[in-house]
Design a protein around this nucleic acid. Structure first.
Length: 803
DNA sequence: TTGTCGCGGGG
DNA sequence: GTGTACGCGACAA
């Protein structure tokens, strides 16, 4: 199944990583059941080239019994991609080497031919009528979508020799009268052209005719600009399904793609919108010839690793990354249409900001998917929303096996062995000073490489091979990226490649551990061996660090926090890390990751760090949570800063100040309010109100508001008589609205109950009671606090386990 | 109370 | 035409 074999730079085993066909600058692929592939290329970033090619649709089968039983003739060949010799039957079979169950590549001129033949035989064998190959038992077939059949068979990938900047990318954003395309209309579409120009297409009225005209213009504009990529935030969850439904209802043909006469198509996608036909199915819209990229996917993929975004909405993310200008127009979602009627310019500015920010966001976070598309045999848009293990590594392994002429194992359920994860130890709770963090970068892939732990059924050793190559090539890409001029295309590309490779390397273990037969080569025993070695490594790190005079605080998976003696210098700290590093297996490198003046260790994975320059870092749900009332978070930050600076009197002062401020109503209203999302409509809540009252809705009603929309986000807070509400615009509130009518006693109690308690580990029970005694209680003098010192408490079980 | 499901986003 | 996780709230049992 070699297809066009390499006669160019990419040869040999690198084919497993990069494919083997050097065709440059593919920007989109569309293939169909009839064996026709359309390839759009943009060589050198210049003008677009549209090529068509024939390919033989193919599938992997475990048995030829069905084909034989069907009576349909077929020929054995050496290469199913090339097909049978002249005069032979249309159906060709290439039999693969090795122990895997899926050992026959069956191909034909058209998909229907091979599907019909196999299904005829299989229907007899299984005693039920089969019409689709997918109806065969899962272990007996592997069927790819046509685009992927084409890419695997040819060894082609997207974007060879092309930079991200050379892609023609268009962003569009709908403004609608509401969220439901069966009830609401589109009245404006902002379009940002690949050259950066933005225009707003607008409906000239609020009837069908005006919307029809708008949709027609939109189609015309997109076709004229002819972008390779279409981007927006929640493109697949909102804009594309919305525009499709509107077009259907209004009878407007939506020929947005590059193939004349081919309308929008669908593909199954776990995170797609519900299909209109079958609400069980989730689908995403496909525009043949263009790649539809949703920046929400990129944001989720980013935050999955980093966990620092306040939310995943466009406005919040754009602000977080500094993509939003200071005068960014903001309008609450449910007011956009009303504003449009009175101040259309405002809506134009708003929509324009949206597409401009989406462009920036796509560039900022889209590099990894772009680079993945150069490696894996899938469409760019699919790689942008795929999970790295099942969505990227698995297809690469399938391509490697097929290319090597090796049979693939079928998916296999585990044998019931449970997967055991990483180690997590809390050695010390409370306040520690002179703290060092040391960790092993990429612990699991390093262990896989060091001890050659790979899937048992991976006869070719392809996964370990890929990890080895990815680690090497990533180091190379990183180094070259650093050498490239800042801001250059080359640097962007190399950094993107490096990011993509890191993603893959770190997913290799997840690939092994994926349960329930998720990945083809999943192997719980191998995964357990990786985590066992990981726990062992962590144990060695802890034991050896402790043996060198440090005090362990917390150890988690691949990293350790430990405190060092008073007189140690940074050089001493680095020395012990290096000493322990020398005891670890080859390829497993313990690195010095940071040093801190003090640490509050609350619970596993919940701690605060004070750097030597005073910078405070809070980690874990105990210290940061989107739902927490801001006054409480502010108090915690302040109190912990003083605590870690060793100033207990200031901790008490912060407490007293907060209590006083609440008592006097000096805390701004918005600082006591919690963010909530109203999911129930007023009617829906009215129906359940008798049986169960929920505070946010009660607050709305108490405020005399019974007209909210489901999904609306508001801030709510307690008043002495019930609740009250503050409106939110893209995560912000109107600062001028500040009635200070909150229930002061309630919030003082809340301060104690949920925030002060998070400092309990820092003191002995007596001292804790002293530091946080009620202001109105016994008079308390500074001298009472002078003797109070933050404490650290050893957790005996954790230390005992070290032996 | 406990377990399961679905959400996160878009106007 | 498969398949991310994590924490949380809603709902059913």
């Amino acid at each position: 199944m070699a297809g066009v074999r390499a006669s160019f730079g990419v040869t040999g085993d690198d084919a497993w990583l990069w494919g083997w066909d050097a065709t440059p600058a593919i920007v989109s692929v569309h293939a169909d059941d009839r064996g026709e592939a359309h390839i759009w290329r943009r060589p050198g970033g210049g003008s677009l080239v549209h090529e068509t090619a024939r390919f033989r649709p193919w599938a992997l089968l475990a048995t030829l019994d069905d084909l034989e039983a069907s009576g349909v003739p077929f020929a054995h060949v050496d290469n199913a991609a090339e097909g049978p010799p002249v005069g032979s039957p249309d159906i060709a079979v290439q039999t693969l080497r090795g122990p895997g169950a899926l050992r026959h590549i069956v191909s034909a001129t058209r998909w229907r031919t091979l599907e019909a033949a196999v299904c005829r035989g299989a229907s007899q064998r299984l005693g039920r009528r089969l019409t689709r190959l997918q109806q065969l038992p899962p272990g007996e077939r592997h069927v790819l979508p046509p685009d992927e059949q084409y890419l695997v068979a040819t060894g082609r990938t997207y974007f060879r020799d092309l930079t991200f900047a050379q892609l023609h990318r268009l962003q569009f954003d709908l403004e609608t009268t509401g969220l439901d395309p069966t009830q609401h209309r589109i009245f404006l579409i902002a379009v940002r052209a690949p050259d950066g120009r933005v225009r707003c297409l607008e409906a000239t009225g609020d009837d069908d005719a005006a919307e029809v005209a708008l949709l027609r213009r939109f189609v015309k504009v997109v076709r004229a600009l002819d972008p390779d990529v279409i981007e927006n935030h929640n493109l697949h969850g909102f804009d594309l399904p919305f525009v499709r439904t509107r077009a259907k209802r209004l009878g407007v043909p939506l020929h947005l793609g590059r193939l004349d006469g081919v309308p929008l198509l669908e593909r199954a996608a776990q995170r797609g919108a519900r299909s209109e036909r079958d609400t069980e199915r989730r689908v995403r819209v496909v525009i043949p010839g263009r790649e539809c990229i949703d920046t929400l996917d990129a944001v989720r993929r980013y935050d999955f690793a980093v966990r620092e975004l306040p939310g995943h909405g466009l406005k919040a993310v754009a602000r977080h990354f500094g993509l939003a200008g200071p005068d960014r127009e903001r309008i609450p979602g449910d007011r956009i249409h009303a504003v449009w009627r009175t101040d259309p310019d405002r809506v134009r500015r708003y929509a324009t900001a949206d597409v401009v920010e989406v462009e920036g966001l796509a560039r900022l976070l889209g590099g990894a998917a772009f680079a993945l598309a150069r490696m894996a045999p899938r469409r760019y848009e699919r790689l942008a929303d795929a999970g790295p293990a099942t969505g990227v590594i698995d297809p690469m392994l399938v391509r490697a096996y097929v290319h090597a002429g090796h049979a693939l194992p079928a998916h296999e359920e585990g044998d019931g062995t449970v997967h055991v994860g990483a180690a997590l130890h809390l050695f010390t709770a409370g306040v520690a000073t002179r703290v060092v963090k040391a960790d092993v970068a990429s612990l699991y892939p390093s262990l896989m490489r060091a001890f050659r732990i790979g899937p048992r059924r991976d006869a070719l050793g392809a996964l370990l091979f890929l990890v080895d190559r990815l680690v090497d090539q990533r180091l190379d890409a990183k180094a070259r990226g650093r050498a490239a001029p800042p801001g250059s295309d080359e640097r962007f590309t190399l950094e993107a490649v490096s990011a993509a490779m890191k993603l893959l390397v770190n997913s290799a273990y997840g690939y092994l551990a994926a349960g329930g037969g998720l990945t083809r080569f999943a192997d719980v025993h191998a995964a357990n061996e990786v985590t066992r070695r990981g726990r062992e490594t962590l144990h060695v790190m802890c034991r050896e660090l402790a043996a060198r005079g440090t005090t362990l605080v917390e150890a988690d998976t691949d990293g350790v926090f430990f405190a060092v003696p008073e007189h140690w210098t940074e050089a001493d700290e680095r020395r012990v890390v290096a000493e322990v590093d020398a005891l670890l297996p080859p390829l497993v490198r313990l690195e010095f990751d940071g040093r801190y003046a003090a640490m509050l260790s609350h619970e596993p994975k919940n701690y605060a760090l004070r750097a030597y320059d005073g910078t405070l870092t809070l980690r874990g749900v105990a210290f940061r949570s989107s739902r927490a009332e801001p006054f409480g978070e502010q108090f915690l930050r302040e109190a912990i800063a003083h605590l870690l600076a060793g100033d207990v009197a200031a901790v008490r002062a912060a407490y007293l100040r907060t209590v006083d401020a609440l008592h006097a109503g000096a805390v701004p209203t918005v600082h006591v309010a919690a963010r909530v999302r109203l999911r129930k409509s007023p009617d829906a809540y009215a129906r359940v109100r008798a049986t169960r009252r929920e505070f946010p809705y009660e607050a709305m009603l108490a405020a005399g508001r019974d007209d909210w929309e489901a999904w609306q986000r508001v801030r709510v807070y307690r008043t002495p008589t019930g609740g009250a509400v503050i409106d939110e615009i893209d995560g912000d509130v109107d600062a001028a609205h500040d009635p200070r009518d909150y229930d002061r006693a309630y919030y003082i109690a809340l301060l104690r109950r949920t925030f002060v308690t998070r400092l309990a580990r820092a003191f002995t029970p007596d001292d804790f009671a002293r530091v946080f005694a009620d202001p109105g209680q016994l008079p308390l003098f500074d001298s009472d606090l002078a003797s109070v010192r933050p404490v650290a408490t050893a957790i005996p079980e954790a230390w005992a386990a070290l032996q």
